[in-house]
Design a protein around this nucleic acid. Structure first.
Length: 354
DNA sequence: AAACACCCCAACCGCTATGCC
DNA sequence: AGGCATAGCGGTTGGGGTGTT
């Protein structure tokens, strides 16, 4: 048995809005407000539209101070940063971008930013391939060596000191690869890239005027930017420039609180190289199983090659890379006593207990 | 110039959250 | 406390626009 429809579908107009309909809706709301009931609104003003449709039209298009297109570099970074930290909560992301609607950001992400990101990934992969073949060539000339043991001089990742280079090895990419069709994978990829991408990485360019803002894209921006953007809210609610409703603020704040808690948790994990000996990780896949969510599946994929790929939002927080969340010591005690026990991090509890 | 392919975005759909009775 | 109505959200779709062959 399905849910009762919100309106009489037969007597409701669908499709694009006409200027007349827009005018009716806009002038009514400007004079009388919404009146707390979107469902009743279309009848009041003689519109043959569903209340939901009116609401969407107002929020996404007619509302004052709405911006369309022309996303700035700063907005790109904010979107990417928040996507890393909270995923596809478009309404919350929109609350951080004055004049932007969740629908707009969602569309922008799906049509532009995601592709930009994948373009970057492809480039890195090509670069890595080139580097890898060069390395093989040098190995041949020098008499070779064990591929199983990383060279000590190579054992640091320049971008993330202390992190074995293997952990950030490029993930094989193809357009058809289903791994890149889900949000979790994209987010991991974004984290891996440190949020860096430039216009040059954009595989497709439409040449519209709205693309101009990419012209000055700072290609030297680093994961630090992402780190800052993501972490600012955890230290101060003021940093969240809430332009939405009080509800949105409360909701956003709750995510911020969650993120702050995760900071603590991830802070513990982020000392991975010291506390989780890479040797153990590499040589003991069973021990790692269940922990991949703390390090990103790509890590396990690359090194061990066996991991479950649920790819669902259910383990959303767990999928966040510790790279994004540096240690925050102050709340660690509380985290140990409180949140951790309530979280369903079975494997984590297991490893903590052992 | 026409046909086709691809992209973008407005709008829809279905689900969950919330508030009220 | 439970049920219902509405609001709000995120995923998806379809049509128009633009680029390519």
């Amino acid at each position: 048995m399905g849910r009762a429809p919100c309106c009489d579908k037969a007597n409701v107009k669908k499709g694009p809005w006409s200027p007349e309909e827009d005018n009716k809706l806009k002038s009514y709301i400007e004079q009388h407000g919404i009146g707390g009931n979107w469902i009743a609104l279309p009848q009041k003003i003689g519109l043959k539209r569903c209340g939901k449709s009116c609401r969407l039209r107002w929020l996404n298009y007619l509302r004052p101070n709405i911006k369309h297109g022309g996303f700035s570099e700063e907005e790109d970074n904010i979107i990417c940063s928040l996507y890393i930290s909270i995923g596809s909560r478009w309404s919350i992301i929109a609350a951080q971008l004055p004049g932007r609607t969740d629908n707009d950001i969602k569309n922008y992400w799906n049509t532009r930013l995601k592709k930009k990101l994948l373009g970057k990934q492809r480039k890195e992969q090509q670069a890595a391939r080139r580097g890898s073949s060069l390395k093989q060539e040098m190995m041949k000339r020098s008499g070779g060596g064990s591929s199983m043991v990383p060279n000590s001089s190579n054992n640091q990742n320049p971008q993330w000191p202390g992190m074995p280079p293997t952990l950030l090895a490029p993930i094989p990419y193809s357009n058809q690869d289903p791994r890149f069709n889900d949000h979790a994978s994209i987010r991991k990829l974004l984290i891996k890239l440190g949020g860096r991408f430039s216009e040059a990485d954009l595989p497709i360019h439409h040449g519209t005027s709205t693309d101009n803002h990419f012209a000055n894209y700072n290609t030297t921006s680093t994961g630090q930017q992402i780190y800052q953007a993501v972490n600012i809210p955890t230290s101060s609610a003021d940093a969240f420039n809430i332009t939405g409703s009080a509800t949105q603020f409360a909701q956003a704040q709750s995510y911020v609180d969650e993120a702050a808690e995760l900071n603590v948790l991830q802070g513990k994990i982020s000392s991975f190289p010291a506390e989780l000996d890479p040797e153990i990780v590499y040589n003991n896949p069973q021990g790692l199983y269940g922990l991949e969510f703390l390090c990103g599946e790509g890590i396990v994929d690359n090194r061990i090659g066996t991991t479950g790929t649920s790819g669902t939002e259910s383990n959303f927080w767990g999928e966040m890379s510790p790279l994004v969340y540096p240690p925050v010591a102050s709340n660690y005690g509380g985290m140990q006593q409180g949140t951790l026990q309530e979280c369903d991090f079975g494997e984590l509890r297991y490893h903590r207990a052992n």
